[in-house]
Design a protein around this nucleic acid. Structure first.
Lengths: 341, 341
DNA sequence: CGTTTTTCCGTAAACGTTTACGAGAACACA
DNA sequence: TGTGTTCTCGTAAACGTTTACGGAAAAACG
């Protein structure tokens, strides 16, 4: 059924060594025989057995991305990742690498699955997302010396790995600036629980900007919830029930904003009219919601491509002649003004 | 760095054969030595090299799911799949199988990536989604005899593979019934372009129900668009500009409904008030939208688990003593009545 | 005690690659 | 003609497993 290198060799009456060399484009093979091998490979529909190749090479030539459903009800998570993965996969494919996405079980935060990928040597490197402020996955990977890169920063692991992040701190501050310029003084911030780093960064920017404007930070206007619709829905009434309610809310996430707007609607409060709403991470949902939500758009597909480059550059085996180097980048978020603030 | 079976053997002063047999739980190994091997494995942090194992066994013990971004602008696609994959992965893990998700490039409809997975023997079977009415992927897989299962039906490939689908036809009819019972006669249907089978099935149910109620099917009330927000946004005005506009719209998809509602809002038409809206595939988006959209909820996580079972049952190597059998199921969709109709 | 059976383990081949090594042939050069 | 170089290819080992086979030791049985 599946043709191997032996089949080719037998078919052409040459040795398997020569076939392999021809296929791999090595110099010490006659141009004529190489062509015959290539032709035969096409004819017999040969393609190399990954297991055999990986075993011999000691490398799988594939990169794993850990996709993690979050705990909470109804996990419809992360449309966010699709364009990122598209970019990642496109760039990896250019270097002949495969991208595989590994699903974790909800809740265990990937530790078990990550160990499995690393220990069974299923991939040569891994890409992590949803970085936390202190991230045990990063600790683990640095400890065992497994190559990886992260979408998002963390305090764990020092500067030993490539990372690409968005400037949530600046976005948080910019959102506050914008709202203050429009006359708001009571501004709420709603972010995901779990100590996801982007929630932390966002809040840092929010706080800093408020102080800069001479506005006291009111803990009653800051709330955490699950990073989904239910979370936003559940937590928004909390801040609205403050004795001096906010006139504006910044949501960290589109799903939380959707849930929050639902809660507001049920309280008879109209976003964009009775209250200003800004979303930090914009998605098509924000654009097509009514009112269209002002937000900061992440260039996800380019980010995927870039992180692939950065990861490859950090691995000696894949880095070009200039040698391995660790690159860390923080990209700006661009505000898309719409109708909700 | 990575310890192999040879390391264990050397460490314990026994042969690698015995180590392997002990690890794999074979009968012909002394209980005492087995325990010693297990202890040593834990101590040396041994875990088997996947490539070596796959090469020898001729099986990878992993299942691939093809995740495909659709063509169109901004691909944020498919929160839909996360809970499905969660269920799939959970069930596969129970049998010691790994789930890997393979990303395709947008546009090529997976053919290239699929071939790659199959030919390099990266997985023992594959799970397909977004089945089309005539599906070249299914033709290909049946032709080469590679095991697979599909989420969704297709006319391709006969009954040679397990499939699990939702009863979109019945849902389409039920939506029409419900709207007619509420006095509607002009009912539009908006579904994805591409010949995705669920769009076809939905429309079949819609047509049948209309006829049953003695309502003529008006082609001007049926429209296709990209299966995302932009698609719904673009196509909804078309049906509304009909000389006898609809009083109700059934959307095939939540993202299309979101875009459609945006278009309606811009025309000054309020869903749930001026026009009835029903969504066939419900997601949290529908629940938290204002007005909350009536829709049919798919039990995604159980579907993932079930399809895993069905796939395993169809593969001789994995099927139990009762032998391989092909199971095909169509599950009902449950209507969740909300405020939009 | 002799024979048979059982228990346990070592040996070695095999899975499909890649690659270091060496050798034969052709060629160049003196 | 002798020596050295270049081209091209075959041989065989290696990657980490699993497993068929056989054999030694122990146990069972008469």
């Amino acid at each position: 059924m599946a043709s191997s290198i032996h089949d080719l060799a037998r078919h052409l009456n040459i040795s398997i060594g020569t076939v392999s060399r021809a296929l791999n484009g090595r110099a010490d093979v006659n141009a004529d025989t190489r062509q015959r091998v290539l032709d035969a490979a096409a004819k017999l529909n040969y393609s190399p057995n990954q297991s055999g190749r990986s075993l011999r090479r000691g490398a799988t030539h594939s990169i794993a991305f850990m996709l993690q459903p979050h705990p909470g009800d109804q996990q419809y998570g992360e449309p966010f990742f699709i364009p990122f993965l598209t970019g990642l996969q496109a760039k990896l494919a250019e270097s002949g690498l495969d991208l595989i996405v590994v699903m974790g079980a909800p809740g265990d935060y990937q530790q078990e699955r990550l160990r499995r990928v690393v220990e069974t040597r299923r991939a040569d490197a891994v890409v992590l997302a949803w970085t936390r402020r202190e991230d045990e996955r990063i600790d683990y990977l640095t400890r065992v010396g497994f190559p990886f890169a992260t979408l998002g920063r963390s305090r764990s692991g020092g500067k030993s790995y490539p990372s690409l992040d968005l400037d949530f701190e600046k976005a948080g501050a910019e959102a506050v600036d914008r709202l203050v310029a429009r006359g708001h003084r009571r501004i709420a911030a709603i972010r995901p629980s779990l100590n996801l780093n982007f929630g932390y960064l966002f809040l840092a920017g929010y706080r800093k900007a408020l102080r800069r404007h001479g506005i006291e930070v009111d803990p009653g206007l800051i709330a955490d919830g699950f990073i989904n619709e239910a979370g936003g829905y559940g937590v928004t009434p909390q801040v609205m029930r403050s004795k001096d309610p906010p006139t504006a809310i910044i949501f960290n996430n589109d799903a939380m904003a959707l849930g929050g707007c639902k809660a507001l609607a049920e309280m008879g409060i109209k976003p964009g009219h009775d209250i200003a709403v800004i979303v930090i991470v914009d998605t098509p949902l924000c654009r097509y919601f009514s009112p269209a939500l002002t937000g900061f758009r992440p260039p996800l597909e380019p980010m995927g491509r870039r992180l692939a480059e950065m990861l490859l550059a950090s691995i000696p085996a894949f880095a070009g002649p200039e040698g391995a180097r660790i690159i860390r980048e923080v990209w700006p978020l661009e505000l898309i003004a719409r109708d909700s603030d």
